[in-house]
Amino acid sequence: METLIFYTTAFFILAAAGYVVTTMNIFRAAIGLTGVLAGIAGLYLLMNAQFLSAVQITVYVGGIMVLIVFAILLMPEASMHLRRENPKWFRFIGGVSAALVFAVLAYSITAFIGAQDAAGTSLEPAAASIREIGLALLSPGGNGFVLPFEFVSVVLIAALIGATTIAKRTPNPETKEEQE
């Protein structure tokens, strides 16, 4: 059953991702991306990481995706239709490169897993509970993550302010000239 769910979800995610990177309509790409993110949340669930799954749904699907869709809707004429595509040779090289990277990665993963199995160091499956995550997140010391946690909060604040500043409609002399 677990296997079936994994393969189904994986196939769904890959199809959605493929759609995201190939479709000519950016809005549809955004819908595809939502599918990818949701699928990944499903995989988290499959791996007993319920908290992460929830975060993935709320932050990604509920936050970032909404942001992206907003952005798309804000500049419709530039983003609705990807009229121009990169040349074929470009896409070809990109595809070959990506395939190459995948081949190498797959080879490494297989070799790594094989080596691990031979050494017999595989551990029993385990997953951290929400309680454990919460404690680790806020505890100082060797296993604590309070320092990165605080840093992330600072980064988020900075990003918030930065994004507001950048996106603010400033009286731009150049733009005015162009518009005139």
Partner: peptide
Amino acid sequence: LWSIAGAG
């Protein structure tokens, strides 16, 4: 593109 191709 070139950097990814090169890396690959």
